[in-house]
Design a protein around this nucleic acid. Structure first.
Length: 652
RNA sequence: GCCGACGUAGCUCAGGGGUAGAGCGCUUCCUUGGUAAGGAAGAGGUCAUGGGUUCAAAUCCCAUCGUUGGCUCCA
């Protein structure tokens, strides 16, 4: 009879009829046994379900395996339950917060109460998890009434689960049980614990309950699991590789920057090679900015406190920033410049403005100082003194969208030129539930948010939207890039601001001879030089494109007899704006080559008897070996071509 | 700021209640060598800082500073 059957649409568009109440596991079985073994869960009408859950209506079904991100998430979510089961077995009476999957792996927040737990105990938990996984316990879904759920967790005295239950509606509550462990959980889960073949608990950290720093801090245990041992090994290898790309390590090895306890936390010292790299990035952007109609300006490193009271920054950040500098004049206080915008506002105000001269685009590589929380500091990506590639565009309201789109083009040009292909474009909006965090009226905010959304739509950019991530004066479009360990960092940012122009009473005279208020666009394609260099280092593993490389060549004399000639060659190349040096060490050529290769120097120029006679050098390319002998003239042509190639390569 | 871990030579790291070790780097000497490590000798450390325990502390304990994995924060 037809009502006993359900029509199942599979991803390839094929439609099959099955008995009503069939599970996706059984559907998989009907296709192949191998597939059935690999099915972790299934997407039923767009919702991820347990593969054992009966399907009662006509549905579209996508079987999920380890190769689907939903499959992985389900696997890791179930692994979090497995870890909780192990923990409960080892530490009876502990309480659980939440235990979700994350980008790679999962965590569970645990309140150990009076029991002690530290990282040395992780091995014990891993062992227990392995033991429990081998029992191949099924994950069993159970619908429960709110009352029963509350009774259960009251019995366990788990105030965290009880708090979670408060927000749930009766009738929508499910428990999942595997072995001896029962958890409040929406699911879905993998069929049984036996699928979890390889596991590693990676670290342990404190985490505030519900992310609120005023509430209790729980112990968060992170772990990662795999369906095959081999995949765990590969993952650990990947981590190892990522460590090699760590910008803090590379920055030290390549002598780009350093920190000093004496100078202070989070205050980077840029060494000669790092400075060279920065300067090259700066001139690259400056060139693009000149083309785009920007003008350079310079403002001082400190500003009167009143400047930041006007901007609202003082009220927002004053207590948590570097405290005011006092002068012999009791009534005078200065702050280290925490951002450039107020200074640029004052530049705009320097004289009356006409609508005809807008937009005005003031650009400054402005160094700013922010007292970041000590726990936040991280290499070059989060520091207390850094240089923004800042600019502020003052324009008429009718120009906002156009200007915004031009800035998007500039940011994309910068990212493409430097080979950042994997970035997320994030629209950061105000949290309307928490208006206290922001300055300005609804009208200004709505307009600014509309400007950004429309501009990105018209540019055809794929974006994600985050509520509550806006700056306190306006919404932003952020360009997020990941580091070697897949942590996301904001690099480029574009912000629309109707508020600071109001606070600074910025004006221009319109065609109607009336005073009008301009709109400000804040923007920084790199974000900051520090963070950008950090991420660039991790992306290139220190092998910069030639045009950017702080060391482009090294000259290797066969013996000290050829030192003078080597110096002469070096001089000529320096005049051509190339950077390198002569390896004058008393070592054999083989040794010098090895060291240059290890240091990733793109080109080696070898000079000896032969070369002096013909006025030439022998070129050796990093990773490729000897590529022949070139006259000085050809060498310079060759290097020009290589530089150009490195630029266009990134641009293509 | 909070929870946890760590801090030994310029770098990477070993050691560990009886006053310090390796490799690389550096210096000097020998060697003047043609495409991925030539040889020898030597210099370098109050074992982050300050307290405490001890006959004795780099080692154990506490605090501070710094780094670090997270949380919170990020103009």
């Amino acid at each position: 009879m037809s009502e006993q059957k359900v029509k199942i649409t599979l991803p390839d568009g094929s439609i099959k009829k099955y008995d009503k109440g069939i599970s996706s596991h059984e559907i998989a079985l009907s296709i192949s046994e191998g597939l059935a073994r690999n099915v972790l869960a299934a997407k039923v009408n767009g919702e991820v379900w347990d593969s054992s859950r009966p399907i009662m209506d006509d549905s579209t079904v996508k079987l999920l395996t380890w190769n689907d991100s939903d499959g992985k998430n389900t696997f890791w979510h179930s692994s979090a339950h497995l870890m909780a089961e192990a923990l409960e077995a080892l530490y009876p009476g502990i309480k659980f917060g939440i235990g979700p999957p994350v980008e790679t792996g999962f965590y569970y927040d645990v309140d150990f109460g009076d029991q002690e737990f530290d990282s040395a105990d992780l091995g014990k938990v891993e062992q227990k998890m392995t033991e429990l996984a081998r029992q191949k316990n099924d994950y069993i879904r159970e619908e429960v009434s709110k009352k029963d759920a509350i009774d259960y967790f009251t019995g366990k005295d788990d105030e965290y689960k009880l708090e979670l239950l408060e927000d749930l509606e009766d009738g929508s509550i499910t428990f999942y049980k595997q072995g001896n462990f029962t958890d409040l959980c929406r699911g879905p889960h993998i069929p049984n614990t036996g699928i979890i073949k390889a596991l590693k608990l990676t670290n342990i950290a404190g985490a505030y309950w519900r992310g609120d720093e005023n509430r209790k801090q729980l112990t968060r245990l992170y772990g990662v699991t795999f369906p095959k041992k081999k995949e765990l090994d590969e993952y650990l290898m990947l981590l190892e590789e990522a460590r090699k790309r760590d910008h803090r390590k590379l920055g030290k090895e390549l002598e780009l920057f350093t920190f000093s306890e004496k100078v202070g936390q989070g205050l980077p010292l840029w060494l000669p090679k790092g400075t060279k790299l920065r300067e090259k990035l700066e001139s690259f952007l400056k060139k693009a900015q000149v083309k785009a109609g920007y003008e350079s300006v310079i403002s001082p490193h400190i500003g009167n406190k009143n400047l930041y009271v006007t901007s609202g920054h003082y009220e927002k950040y004053g207590d948590d920033s570097f405290q005011p500098i006092h002068t012999p004049n009791e009534n005078e206080e200065f702050l280290l410049k925490p951002m450039n915008c107020p200074h640029h506002c004052e530049m705009y105000k320097f004289r009356p403005r006409s609508y005809k001269e807008l937009p005005i685009r003031y650009a400054e590589f402005g160094t700013v100082y922010r007292y970041e929380q000590s726990g936040e500091l991280h290499g070059l990506t989060r520091v207390r003194g850094f240089t923004q590639d800042d600019a502020h565009i003052f324009c008429r309201p009718d120009q906002v969208k156009e200007e915004f789109k031009k800035v998007i083009d500039l940011v994309l040009y910068v990212f493409n030129s430097l080979g950042f292909n994997n970035f997320i474009t994030q629209i950061s909006l105000r949290d309307p539930e928490n208006k206290k965090k922001y300055i300005g009226d609804d009208e200004a905010w709505n307009q600014a948010e509309k400007d950004i959304i429309e501009a990105t739509e018209e540019k055809g950019i794929k974006t994600v939207t985050e509520i509550g991530e806006a700056a306190f004066y306006g919404p932003k479009l952020d360009f997020m890039v990941k580091d070697a360990l897949k942590r996301s960092w904001q690099l480029g940012t574009i912000q629309v601001d109707y508020n600071l122009p109001k606070r600074f009473e910025l004006e221009y005279v319109g065609a109607d001879n009336q005073k009008h208020r301009p709109v400000m666009i804040h923007r920084a394609p790199f974000g900051s030089m520090e963070r950008f260099v950090a991420i660039l280092l991790e992306h290139t593993a220190g092998r910069f494109p030639l045009w950017l490389s702080p060391l482009q060549y090294i000259i290797l004399p066969i013996s000290e007899k050829y030192a003078n000639y080597a110096n002469k060659v070096n001089q000529e190349l320096t005049l051509k704006d190339l950077t390198g040096y002569v390896d004058h060490r008393d070592e054999k050529i083989g040794r010098k080559i090895r060291d240059a290769e290890m240091n990733k120097i793109p080109f080696m120029f070898i000079v000896g008897e032969k070369e002096i006679e013909s006025g030439s050098v022998s070129i050796r390319k990093h990773g490729e070996g000897d590529i022949g002998t070139y006259s000085m003239k050809d060498l310079i042509l060759f290097m020009d071509k290589e530089i150009e190639k490195s630029l266009s390569l990134e641009n293509s």
